[in-house]
Design a protein around this nucleic acid. Structure first.
Lengths: 237, 237
DNA sequence: CGTTCGTTTGAACTGGTTCAAACTGCGTGG
DNA sequence: CCACGCAGTTTGAACCAGTTCAAACGAACG
């Protein structure tokens, strides 16, 4: 999408030098843990969440290869959220100071990372609006569409081309509930309804979108990736 | 908080050169408007929101002096949200290319801006968790505490010192509802309950916190500002 | 002084929760 | 190979937090 200079390529590659493997369900970082590193997710699927004092959980985000993890380290000394692997995963840790070097020597990369942060922030606002103001059915449908999009080309979230009709996010209904602010029970009912409406088919953990347009409509889905524009980035150096 | 070099001071000052005045309720930017500039809010209070197709509104964020507006311009060609003035306000527009210059010539400032973005992202996740997983009473209490904090020293959100017991956010119950995912009617009932519980006193649009600790507890309030850590920022240049 | 915008209160209603129980598939150990 | 246990799914029934609808009230403002 953006042609990188050899120097930029090297700088990015340096982020991926150290590797750390995580088993499914492993916690990379807990809420309030000391925070001195960031990570790039190289392989697998992860999530971040917070726990409330009554034990309820809110999943904040699902993460896919290429995503930065623990970016809160750029402003906080302790983690505001827990990071957990949903599948066996590989992450690449790097120190906060490496980020400082990036800003110093690769301004265009730093700017691109800032742009990615914006995308994430906007995704978050979409979720906020969904949870605050839409029905349970819309929220579940919306999450499925988001997951489909992100699974489409993990490691290349800007991939073009039609999204696959069939996909397998590999998360439980409990997790869908914790991401959408619903109970697992009600998620189940909404999935059944989407199925009964003929929008969706299910088989085990696998979903098949039957009516793309109608599903997107019931989800209030907006494809943010269509409106991307990185025209402002500084010159390569 | 961070000692700026003369060059950095000049660069920041340059962002504030042009001024644009907005009346209360004026729309600075509508959803889907073409997006080529960012802004710094110099004076007043603003908010950003999205409208759903059924006319419901979700307020995403309240903005105070010193905040950047329309940062989505760093990734998108059109605005994902509407920006509206809640009081008469002054904003300072600057082109996206100015941001590019900042990354090129003032890496430490650019990094600091990225850190601010992180703070905003975390504030958003707190709201997400509140709306997704807490009671109406907690959400209303939480919003009030957040507003108090931000009003404390508008233009210097990192100010130390006790928050004032009494403050006047100047927003309607309808707006509190649209920010917390509730109806105006129910917001009213929650305010009365907080009052009956002896946590809060009200007079017109003015709130007085009577029991700080208990209010914070019912709100699940976490003071994120306590854990800030910008130790990683690159050297001044 | 009437109009408009926001607040307040009541009463009926409903989307989503809670609790409970049955069911499914799957890995593990005997 | 089977039995067991476990994690997740599915369904029903009662319940409740928050919504909806309706109406009255107050204060600011032209």
């Amino acid at each position: 999408m953006i042609a990188l200079t050899p120097g930029e390529k090297a700088a990015l590659a340096a982020l991926g030098e150290r590797e750390r493997r995580l088993r499914r369900n492993a916690v990379l970082l807990s809420e309030n843990d000391r925070l001195t590193e960031l990570f790039v997710l190289k392989q697998g699927m992860m999530m971040s969440y917070v726990l409330l004092d009554d034990g309820r959980r809110q999943i904040l985000r699902f993460m896919f290869p290429g995503d930065f993890l623990a970016t809160a380290a750029l402003a906080y000394g302790t983690s505001p959220e827990t990071l957990m692997a949903l599948t066996d995963s590989i992450v690449c840790p790097f120190d906060r100071s490496v980020m400082a070097g990036l800003f110093d020597h690769h301004p265009r990369l730093a700017a691109a990372i800032t742009a990615l942060e914006q995308m994430e922030r906007v995704a978050m606002t979409d979720r906020l609006a969904a949870i605050g103001r839409t029905s349970a059915k819309a929220r579940v449908a919306g999450l499925l569409l988001e997951l489909r999009h992100r699974l489409r080309a993990a490691g290349n979230s800007l991939a073009k081309g039609a999204a696959p009709a069939s996909f397998s996010p590999g998360i439980t209904q409990e997790e869908i509930g914790d991401a959408t602010g619903l109970t697992a029970v009600h998620v189940n009912r909404m999935l059944r309804q989407l199925e009964d409406d003929g929008l969706l088919a299910r088989d085990g953990g696998r979903f098949t979108v039957l009516d793309d347009a109608r599903l997107a409509r019931t989800a209030n889905y907006v494809d943010r990736y269509a409106g991307l524009d990185f025209g402002w980035l500084p010159q390569p150096r």
